[in-house]
Structures are given as structure tokens and as C-alpha cells.
């Protein structure tokens, strides 16, 4: 109880009070009402500061979480196939997720080097020209990205991927954590369901769609929530990739980075607390929405 009060309840309440204050850690908090929230609203409107950070975070979270779920389920399905060397493949998929984030980030800086990085080398095999990954602020999934692709198809250059895409790629590398959970859930699906589907004449795809996915849905739901929270909290990799600046062109200025800089570079603890509270509300709303929609797509096994 004491731990709860001092380590959770008090900081929680204090940060709310500070969000209504101007506070720089040194001088006593000065009550300024809703000024910090007004500023956040203004930045949201102008797409500067908090607004830009929220947009960046949204792009990163939506794409990385979606891809993590899709890749995780597909990989787990493949890895559950009883083939020779199954344990080795499983280990290889899980291995990246145990590498410390800082070490992995440094490794990815090398891999994504535009001149000598391995990723560009691999892309060149399929005819994709060198990408500038960590040096550009552009986003692949955007109207500009579509224009680039269409120009490329018509013989132009292709400058598609930017630093957020690089971050997503790096996040995908650590998908092994999710895969382990999916594997456990897959092994729990009763074989009779597949046998029944086979008797009904279902092929592999139909079995996956009508048996595997519904049976995995509670775990997908769990990973979706955890992935969402984790993506919003992503900090260490962004800090290393952008050398603590959120650059290039503010494209790696995710909410976590914006929080860090406004707290420990600009020492605007009140504004930072307000930002953290808005983030909390957004996460709460997103989670509630997911829970509300879950009754339509999450299937729990009942004992009857």
C-alpha cells in the first residue's frame, strides 16, 4: 500500500497538478490554469511540437503494430509446421528480441547505411535503388510515397523510405517476442477443429482463416494492446538512432522524445506533464475502443 501511494498514486496526482502549472524543477510550481493544455491544442492545430510528435507517433504505432501482428501470426504459423530444424528456426526468430535495444540500434545504423548498408544491398537485388533511411524525414506510406512509386514505375528515381520507416523495420526485427506467444496459442488449438474443417473440405487457407485466426484472436487482441502501449513508449531506439535529437527533420520526434526534450532540455515540466496526460487519455481511449470492438472479432473458447 505504501509502495502504491508513493510510487504510483502520488506521482500520478502530482503530475496532474503540475500540468496546470509552470514548473522547471528548481522554482516552486506556479499555477497557470489550462495554459499548457491550450498550448497543446494550438500545437495540435499547427502540427508543430506536440502536434507533429503525435502525428509521427501515430504513423509509427499504427504501421508497426499492424505489421507486427501480421508478421507475428504468419511467422508463428510457419514455425509451428513440423519440419526438420524447427527449434533452430524458432531460435533464430526469437534471438533478435533478446539483444539489448541500444546494441540493436547501433547495429541497424550500420545496416541502414545508405552507401554500404546491407539493407540497401538486399533491396538492390530486387531493383530498388539506394534509400536514405535514417537521413531523410519522408514516410513511405504517404501521398508523396505513392507519387514516388508511380514516378519510379515510369522510369524515375525512387526516394521512398525515411527514418520512421527505418524505425518500423527495426521494430519488426524484434517481433520474436510476439511470435513466442502466438506459438504457445497455436499449440493450444485442438486438432479436432482442423480435422472437422478437413472433413468439411477446407483447404489450407480456409483452415487458417476459419480455425487458426479465430482461435488466435484472444492472443492477437492481447498483443495488439501490448504492442500499442509499447510503440507509444518507444524511446531508447529513437534516442540512439537520432542521437537524442528527434532528427532528421523532426521525423523521429515521437511523443516519448518530445516528452524527454521538453522535460530535460527545455525544463518545462508543467507542459511535459500536460503532454503526458493527453497521451494517457489517448492511450486509454484507444484501448477502450479496442475492447469495445473486441466482442465482434475476438472469440473466447467456452467450457460448454
Amino acid at each position: 500500500m505504501v509502495g502504491f501511494v508513493f510510487l504510483f498514486a502520488w506521482p500520478f496526482a502530482a503530475s496532474f497538478y503540475w500540468s496546470l502549472c509552470r514548473f522547471d524543477l528548481i522554482n516552486p510550481p506556479e499555477f497557470i490554469g489550462l495554459e499548457n493544455y491550450r498550448r497543446l491544442a494550438s500545437e495540435l492545430h499547427s502540427q508543430q511540437g506536440f502536434g507533429l510528435a503525435l502525428t509521427n507517433t501515430l504513423y509509427y504505432s499504427v504501421i508497426s503494430v499492424s505489421l507486427s501482428v501480421i508478421t507475428g501470426v504468419l511467422l508463428a504459423t510457419l514455425l509451428s509446421a513440423k519440419v526438420k530444424g524447427q527449434a533452430i528456426y524458432r531460435t533464430l526468430v526469437f534471438l533478435p528480441s533478446v539483444i539489448p535495444i541500444v546494441a540493436a540500434s547501433v547495429l541497424w545504423i550500420w545496416l541502414l547505411d545508405p552507401e554500404s548498408g546491407m539493407i540497401n544491398y538486399l533491396l538492390s537485388w530486387v531493383g530498388i535503388p539506394n534509400q536514405n533511411w535514417l537521413n531523410q524525414s519522408r514516410s513511405a506510406i504517404s501521398p508523396a510515397g505513392l507519387t514516388e512509386v508511380s514516378q519510379w514505375i515510369h522510369g524515375g528515381t525512387l526516394n521512398l523510405f525515411g527514418s520512421k520507416d527505418a524505425l518500423i523495420l527495426m521494430t519488426m526485427w524484434g517481433v520474436g517476442n510476439f511470435v513466442v506467444i502466438y506459438l504457445a496459442a497455436l499449440s493450444d488449438i485442438p486438432g479436432q477443429l482442423y480435422e472437422a474443417a478437413e472433413i468439411d473440405g477446407a483447404n489450407l487457407i480456409r483452415k487458417f482463416y476459419h480455425v487458426t485466426l479465430p482461435m488466435l484472436s484472444p492472443v492477437i487482441f492481447f498483443n495488439l494492446i501490448m504492442g500499442l502501449i509499447r510503440s507509444v513508449q518507444t524511446f531508447a531506439s529513437v534516442y540512439v538512432l537520432s542521437e537524442g535529437t528527434g532528427e532528421p527533420g523532426s521525423s523521429l520526434m515521437l511523443i516519448s522524445m518530445q516528452l524527454f526534450l521538453s522535460a530535460f532540455s527545455d525544463f518545462e515540466m508543467g507542459y511535459t506533464s500536460a503532454m503526458a496526460w493527453i497521451l494517457f487519455v489517448i492511450l486509454l481511449a484507444a484501448t477502450t475502443l479496442l475492447f469495445r470492438t473486441s466482442k465482434h472479432w475476438v472469440h473466447y473458447r467456452t467450457s460448454s
Partner: peptide, 9 residues
């Protein structure tokens, strides 16, 4: 892009 890639080098 050429300059950014070169600088990274």
C-alpha cells in the same frame, strides 16, 4: 538525397 547519403558515409 545524394548529399545526405554521402555525408552519412
Amino acid at each position: 538525397d545524394n548529399l545526405a547519403a554521402f555525408r552519412k558515409g
